[in-house]
Design a protein around this nucleic acid. Sequence first.
DNA 1: GCCAACGTTGGC
DNA 2: GCCAACGTTGGC
Length: 171
Amino acid sequence: MSPARPRGFWLFKTEPSVFSYADLEAAPGRRTGWNGVRNYQVRNWLRDTVAVGDGVLLYHSSAEPTGIAGLARVSAAARPDPTQFDPRSPGYDPASTRAEPRWYEVEVEAVAALPQVLTLAELRAAPELATLAVLQHGQRLSILPVTPAEWLAILQRAGVREPRRKSGARP
DNA sequence: GCCAACGTTGGC
DNA sequence: GCCAACGTTGGC
């Protein structure tokens, strides 16, 4: 038996006018394939590093307010992003084939909305979050890593205790 | 709507 | 392989 991989943490950006945390909660099974990523760095993380059970902060960008709206978890590992094969999708990539897909998605499942959005201004004002990737100047990636310390600090700032998951249980 | 940052594209 | 032009992101 291999030792459990340490749980990873991520921040997923979304424009709530396109897909919000509430939309995730309203989705069938409270889950969705996180498709549409078209950046190679992020693709590599999705394909190679993001794992089932990892914690996800859902971040609303270009929003009022901008900030972290809810918690989610990775519920299925990387698989080809179906929108790359769909000519009607804005994510269509004619250079991609089913034999050799270029783009991947993971599935995310809603865990809990934050009591209120933890705003970008609040994140910037928190000294313990100075290293948070999403706050770094010029970063534009739609998925960013979060350290365990940052994850805990954000949950504290948000005033939430992470829901305990029954060990071995599957919903 | 502006614009800084930066990834991607394509001419050479 | 260089690098200017272009497109996108996202805060403000």
